[in-house]
């Protein structure tokens, strides 16, 4: 019996995709980069004067058909990375008031299709062991102190990641937990796809230049 599950696991073979060494196997259309022109009934003012702001966008499809998604998952911006985390990057998630969508997509990067552990990205259950604080959701009164304490408990050097429209701009539900300039990594989406999350984290752990074998394609 001790080998039972081991053998069952082996029988299934490798299920992990070749991404990020090859193209994404199943990138979603929503959310992805949006382009177009003309009028848009945007509930979050993500489209103003024909310019699209991915950090405000909740990808509600109200701008269709004048604006269309292209499947590009590079919906992130890394203003500061850290080469110290090149081999192992521990992330501590804080849900300040999310709908659980960002939580699920973040946890999905550890599922066999993406297997972020093989790329040196891990989740930690305590901010004391964390290299980065990953903030999800709008600001709620009850989580304000927990967010501050988690940040203070982290050792240096540390990064702060904003995940999803709520954390970056408040989305459609409220106000963001932190001002834009306090995030070192900003990941757009409502919620961002696991591909986008993984690409952004890979770039963050490789340092300031952002040019590494995983993320050559640059930012939005």
């Amino acid at each position: 019996m001790s080998n039972f599950w081991f053998l069952k696991g082996i029988k299934k073979g490798v299920k992990t995709e070749k991404f990020p060494y090859e193209q994404e196997e199943s990138p979603p259309l929503w959310p992805s980069k949006i382009s177009g022109s003309g009028k848009a009934e945007c509930p979050t003012n993500a489209i103003e004067n024909g310019k699209w702001n991915s950090e405000k966008c909740i990808f509600c499809r109200r701008c269709v058909p004048n604006y269309q998604p292209d499947g590009d998952q590079n919906l992130f911006d890394v203003s500061k990375g850290e080469k110290t985390f090149k081999r192992s990057f521990y992330v501590f998630p804080v849900d300040t008031g999310s709908c659980s969508g960002c939580n699920m997509e973040f946890f999905n990067i550890f599922s066999p299709q993406y297997d972020s552990s093989r790329l040196g990205i891990f989740m930690t259950n305590t901010p004391r062991h964390a290299d980065a604080l990953l903030v999800m959701g709008i600001m709620t009164d009850g989580m304000r102190e927990a967010l501050e304490l988690a940040y203070e408990a982290m050792p240096e050097p540390k990064l702060v990641i904003g995940l999803g429209a709520c954390a970056l701009s408040g989305g459609i539900l409220g106000t963001p937990p932190l001002p834009k300039d306090q995030y070192n990594i900003r990941i757009s989406g409502c919620p961002p796809s696991p591909y986008t999350v993984l690409k952004a984290l890979l770039k963050a752990k490789e340092g300031d230049d952002g040019l590494n074998e995983y993320s050559r394609s640059g930012t939005n």
């Binding site: 979603p28 929503w30 997509e105 599922s111 299709q113 919620p191």
Partner: peptide
């Protein structure tokens, strides 16, 4: 977890969004 992600992709293909938003 693998099967769950497969369901998310089926939902994404059918409804254009993995969480059926909009």
């Amino acid at each position: 977890a693998y099967l769950k992600e497969k369901i998310s992709r089926i939902i994404g293909n059918l409804f254009d969004h993995r969480y059926m938003f909009s």
